[in-house]
Simulated scan of single mutants.
Amino acid sequence: MFKLGVLDQSQVGEGRTASDALKETTRLAQEADKLGFSRYWVSEHHASRSLAHSSPEVLIAHLASATSRIRLGSGGVMLPHYSAYKVAENFRLLEALHPGRIDVGLGRAPGGMPIATRALQEGKYMHIDEYPQQITDMIGYLHDSLGPDHRFAGLHASPAIDTAPEMWLLGSSGESAKIAARLGLSFGFAQFFGTPGGEEAVRYYKDNFRPSPLNEKPYALAAVLAVCADTEEEANRLATSTDLFFLRLEQGLELSFFPSVETAHDYPYTEYDLQRIRMGRHRRIVGNPDQVKARLEELAEQYQADELLIVSPIHNFAARLHSYRLIAEAMKL
């Protein structure tokens, strides 16, 4: 049986503030801890008014202190913006504070618009082709395994600890799957992005995985969007907020908030808009507990996933908590 975790993007609900969203993230992490979810990951987004956090390392520290059992991690750190050495030190410190509970998920997407990327990389030369080297450097820093020929041979990433955070490569294409397979890392695919080729990427990863000191066997997860309610009708009603949010994002017109059901209901959709929404729904899981359970099991099999991360964007926070509770109950966590 596959495991279930949580992916949280801390969306700022219409009529609420970023501080409100972060309080909701903390409350949800505590509930996920009690319900038996395996891990709780937070994402990295820049220059967005509708998403409340841009620094997963800072938020992980807060959430780990507010919970007791669940693993906390990044979904993920956008490594090309940063020094691999500094990222390794950040996560070593988190691991020292909360041994055995920290994941470092790494990605290479920009996490924002080009202007944010320019600001993040101001005065720095970095080419995307260097990303595989950054991953190799991260392994060396986190596991004190830099070779004698490494350009920084003998360098230590503080603090000195006996354990290391779990390391993951994340992606929405096949390229990260290839790197993860070659280096023997765990791999996560963002299914809810809607990028095609996910099943093939995971299949390639598992078929070509090379055992490493980090992992003897391949381990893959998929991040999926699921909205669960007591009835299918109510789940579909709650999911209209997600429909509108992603429609606007697809059009390059990101909202400055996550819309309420009422705003979504009153939006002046064109026929083409409605067609795009219907097409988007096929990659999302919306329904009552039995329907969601069946679809999660189907997706886990399709993706050969050892684990699924559930992102459940719902404007009403009580309904969002209820969605995760229903999923946990249906999946017998």
Rank of each mutant, 00 (worst) to 15 (best):
T195I: 08
P196W: 06
G197T: 10
G198M: 11
E199F: 04
E200I: 11
E200A: 15
E200N: 15
E200S: 15
A201E: 12
A201Q: 03
A201W: 06
V202H: 00
V202R: 00
R203Y: 02
Y205W: 14
Y205T: 06
Y205V: 06
K206I: 10
D207S: 15
D207Y: 06
D207F: 11
N208W: 12
N208A: 14
N208S: 15
N208V: 12
N208T: 10
F209T: 00
F209Q: 01
R210I: 13
R210A: 04
R210M: 05
R210L: 03
R210G: 05
P211I: 14
S212W: 05
S212V: 05
P213T: 10
P213E: 08
L214C: 08
L214Y: 09
L214V: 08
L214S: 12
N215M: 08
N215W: 01
E216D: 13
E216W: 05
E216S: 12
K217F: 01
K217S: 06
P218R: 00
P218L: 02
P218W: 00
P218S: 03
Y219K: 00
A220D: 01
A220T: 01
A220V: 02
L221D: 09
L221W: 10
L221A: 11
A222W: 01
A223T: 15
V224Q: 03
V224L: 10
L225C: 15
L225K: 14
L225H: 15
L225I: 12
A226L: 07
A226P: 10
A226T: 06
V227G: 01
V227W: 05
V227M: 12
C228R: 10
C228G: 07
C228K: 05
A229Q: 02
A229Y: 03
D230A: 11
D230I: 05
D230C: 07
D230E: 14
T231M: 15
T231Y: 14
T231F: 06
T231R: 07
T231W: 11
E232P: 03
E232L: 04
E232V: 11
E232G: 05
E232Q: 10
E233F: 04
E233Y: 04
E234W: 04
A235C: 13
N236C: 12
N236S: 10
R237F: 13
R237I: 08
R237E: 15
R237P: 08
L238C: 08
L238A: 04
L238R: 07
A239Y: 07
A239K: 00
T240C: 12
T240W: 08
S241A: 14
T242N: 08
T242V: 13
T242D: 15
D243Y: 09
L244N: 09
L244Y: 03
L244T: 02
L244P: 02
F245H: 12
F245L: 07
F246C: 01
F246K: 09
L247F: 08
R248L: 03
R248I: 06
R248C: 04
R248G: 00
R248T: 04
L249K: 07
L249H: 01
L249C: 06
E250I: 04
E250V: 06
E250A: 15
E250H: 14
Q251V: 01
Q251P: 01
Q251C: 00
Q251S: 05
G252N: 03
G252Y: 04
L253N: 09
L253K: 14
L253E: 14
E254P: 11
E254Y: 08
L255N: 12
L255M: 14
S256R: 13
S256A: 03
